[in-house]
């Protein structure tokens, strides 16, 4: 494989530095074998511009820290190899989320607020008994729960969704997928009615217009279309049969 000279156009803006203005800055970097954007950005920071702000943690595509717009598309930078990109690469921070600086955005706070709003935890009246055997569960159901639970809260789906960009209240597919996980979990004793209260509305399941960017962009390849449709159908039934408002 021929190694190239890469030209990176990177969004720069540090809101904490007074007088700083948003701009695109260009960097030149020699490509290396098997180079990922994690390596490229680290090298830029260590050799050319140590003030460059970006987020990585696991650098193994499991923690969701490093999503950014790579040539316009939300992707995980740590698992994007430069050899799959053209010579000129544009990097921008994700939209929707609050900008911290340069390529870093506050996905953490967004997801925390979302999880609070959904009360995304198991609601149960049972007490834990340390001496008792665990409750049984069908393995297929456990795997189905895991299928939704795999979301790493990277925000790619949110940043790619036109609805989320237009409406800041929209819970987005990550939220609906998270809810689906509790909906099918028998340990969560919430009734369909209670779920309907939370997401059976324009800010939740009925706000999605089916743009499907989420489904195409999710780096974990979670089947978001099926998850969204599942929630929508369940909420339809819950809304028609339930006593909700």
């Amino acid at each position: 494989m021929a190694l190239r000279t890469l030209k990176l156009e990177i969004f720069r803006y540090n809101p904490n530095v007074s007088g700083d203005k948003p701009q695109m800055q260009e960097y030149i970097l020699e490509e290396e074998p098997d180079m990922t954007l994690f390596m490229a950005l680290t090298r830029l920071r260590e050799e050319q511009d140590p003030s460059l702000i970006f987020d990585f943690s696991c650098r193994a595509a499991v923690c969701g820290s490093c999503a950014m717009l790579i040539n316009g598309r939300p992707k995980l930078a740590c698992k994007t190899m430069t050899k799959d990109l053209r010579k000129k690469i544009t990097l921008m921070p994700l939209p929707v989320f609050k900008l911290i600086g340069d390529l870093s955005v506050d996905t953490g706070s967004w997801f925390r607020a979302m999880n609070k709003r959904l009360e995304a935890w198991v609601h149960t009246n049972k007490e834990f008994d340390p001496d008792a055997q665990e409750g049984r569960m069908d393995n297929d159901l456990a795997l189905r729960i895991y299928e939704s639970e795999r979301c790493i809260e990277c925000g790619c789906c949110v940043a790619g969704c036109g609805t989320a960009i237009l409406r800041e209240e929209f819970i987005s597919s990550a939220g609906l997928n998270r809810l689906a996980r509790f909906f099918i979990d028998p340990r969560d004793e919430r009734s369909p009615d209670q779920y309907f209260e939370v997401i059976g509305n324009e800010y939740g399941t009925f706000g999605c217009v089916g743009l499907m960017a989420c489904d195409d962009l999710c780096p974990m390849e979670i089947p978001l279309q099926q998850q969204l449709a599942f929630v929508r159908r369940k909420m339809l039934v819950a809304g028609l049969t339930g006593s909700g408002r």
Binding site: L69, G72, R73, P95, G160, G162, I165, L166, V209, G210, L211, M212, A213, D216, L217
Partner: peptide, 16 residues
């Protein structure tokens, strides 16, 4: 939404 679609270049978003 126009800017978003242009940046994203995503088929289903354009169709919408």
């Amino acid at each position: 939404i126009w800017k978003h679609s242009r940046l994203l270049m995503h088929y289903d978003t354009w169709t919408w």
